[in-house]
Write a protein that binds this DNA or RNA. Structure first.
Lengths: 347, 347
DNA sequence: TTTAGCACTTAGCACATTGAAGTGCTAAGA
DNA sequence: TCTTAGCACTTCAATGTGCTAAGTGCTAAA
């Protein structure tokens, strides 16, 4: 158990360090504390906090910086989220105050906005119904044997892909295939659709098209697109800001990580169960990110599912400000999306 | 006029410097030259080359490096493009040897490939018919008052956009509007289409829809998309490789330049008239790129127009190898696209 | 015109010096 | 028992010094 004074000191060290990035020494600290003790006393307290693993030194005679455990303690017990600055709130609202035609646009814009506000890297994940249902499938002939396939799910997401139709497929056969899909797959959850695509559907389609694989591949590809392409990343470049000597090779691997949506998904994966979650340093499952901190928050769009927003910054980020900001942002985003759905559901 | 020996020396300096990046000294150089002279002689020659502005020193007692003018002279008079390495050629061909459904995929893949082969940053521009014609326009209802607009041009490019239809628009009116567009605009060049959109079309459409602006804006937006979204950038990160101390702020502005397609367009703009063009340092119109060199090349897809590929690297790039590579690449790309068009035109 | 020789310049590196900031420990005071 | 002044000690970071390697320009002789 920590004494009140220890708590005060730990809290002050985290706040000062996340503010100016310099290790905190006993003398500097004593002048900023509301209590009247000498620097020697502070030194003693610091030593015990270090013994407990909450602080550490960067070298034997340096000031103290919080350890991962120290940050964790601070976040869990000492931190109070800042109220979001009204200028930030205004910025968010004015950015959301435009006409968006698609959810993707809103969520993508959110990633950029969030990265701008924090000057970190931001991620946004579209609201996802666990059991999104296939709502419709269309094939639109474009001429020259090309066709656009469009897939709509009941959470409002639209995916499309153009492809070439082999010459041995005649239009009537194609019609029949679409009918099969519309009759038998529309209304099912995407999971069920995938299952059917591996079992009976190829057989049925095979009656009309000689090589159903080619066609079904395209269909499956769009389906996959709609279940994997729901990430947006904003402010990738901000990664360069916080690490004085950006080591090209690590930057490189981080950037490529951000291209791989599956890996990102696994990082953000568990977040859906929590409200606002802070992962610090090696608490993040991905090894590449072990020197960063990740704040994730869910946002809830009522019956249209939940999404995730996240920011990735240095472990020494000002947590209280960031948590306040992320908290406010998700509320705004959720509201904006509710409005969006309201528009398309009710007009 | 330069003497033979001066030419030999200039050529050697450019080649050695672009190879290992170290300024070239007289002693080092004399050992690599096929002629038997002393280092003092080389020094004299170097001094005269420097007087002519073809060489420069990094500091008063350093070896020589080529100046912009020196590179220019080398590229214009001394360089012979390398034959492309067969391993590179194999790599290109195997990458092109997959099924592509859209031109965009081919051209985007090209940018990545080219950046990988060169380890520089690469740009590709889709083949563009000066007078691409509007070939078709479709509206596909998606349910919930949402509609996908699809636009096809006769160079094979497909653009689409979903949007919400105001509730006061009834389906029959929409039908009529599509008919107007299909009857009156299909077959025209995009330039003409834009003109008509500003003159008589709004009046005609106004007969069926109360506020034609909203609808026509969407139409115009897709049109613009199809005439501006034809750039692809590969290997952005490679910019980090060649500049030992990547200054974050300059990297930042370079990256944002690559997001602004209009600015990029102006950089690559003049290239269409040339075959293979090399721009060195401040010859590039954009100021941000004045420490880089840009090699651009057109590729010709017969009646389907011309495109551009380009690589951006340090001024000290090995020009002969790069020019050879870019030359070979564009041939392969052109052939691949010709095959693609052949497929969709003739089956 | 070429070359050997020489004095001179510079970058880059290893190394030492110094000052600022910080620590731990001890012994005395409250 | 807790607090504190004082002090010796450590480390970083900035600065300066000396040395070497690589290069240059210039001069005078071949």
């Amino acid at each position: 158990m920590l004494t009140d004074r220890e708590l005060l000191i730990l809290k002050a060290i985290v706040q000062i360090y996340t503010d100016d990035g310099q290790p905190v020494g006993s003398k500097a600290l004593v002048s900023k504390l509301p209590i009247h003790v000498s620097s020697a006393t502070i030194r003693n307290e610091m030593a015990t906090l270090e013994e407990m693993g909450l602080l550490k030194k960067t070298h034997s005679s340096s000031g103290r910086v919080p350890s991962i455990k120290g940050y964790r303690y601070y976040v869990d017990h000492l931190l109070k989220p800042d109220k979001v600055q009204s200028s930030d709130l205004r910025k968010i609202r004015s950015s959301f105050n435009q006409q968006f035609q698609e959810i993707d646009d809103i969520v993508a814009e959110s990633a950029d906005m969030l990265s701008q506000l924090t000057s970190y890297t931001a991620f946004t994940v579209k609201p996802e119904l666990k059991d999104a249902k296939l709502e419709g499938f269309r094939l639109v002939p474009l001429g020259n044997h090309r066709v656009m396939a469009i897939l709509v799910t009941d959470n409002g997401s639209v995916q499309n892909r153009t492809f070439k139709v082999p010459k041995n497929v005649n239009p009537e056969a194609l019609e029949s295939v679409i009918r099969i899909i519309n009759d038998q797959l529309v209304g099912l959850t995407l999971g069920e659709v995938f299952k059917r695509l591996e079992t009976d559907i190829p057989i049925q389609v095979g009656k009309y098209i000689e090589t159903p694989e080619g066609f079904l591949d395209v269909f499956e590809e769009i389906l996959k697109k709609s279940s994997t392409e729901h990430f947006f990343v904003g402010g990738r470049l901000n990664l360069l800001n916080f690490s004085k000597h950006p080591d090209p090779s690590s930057i490189r691997s981080l950037y490529s990580l951000m291209g791989r949506s599956t890996d990102l998904a696994s990082v953000l994966g568990g977040s859906l169960d929590h409200n606002i979650q802070v992962q610090i340093g090696n608490e993040i499952t991905n090894n590449l990110l072990k020197n960063y901190s990740l704040i994730t928050a869910t946002y809830d769009v009522d019956q249209h599912g939940k999404g995730v927003i996240a920011i990735l910054g240095p472990t020494s980020m000002p947590y209280s400000r960031m948590i306040g900001l992320v908290g406010a942002f998700r509320t705004e985003l959720a509201q904006r999306l509710i409005d969006y759905y309201h528009d398309i559901d009710d007009i």
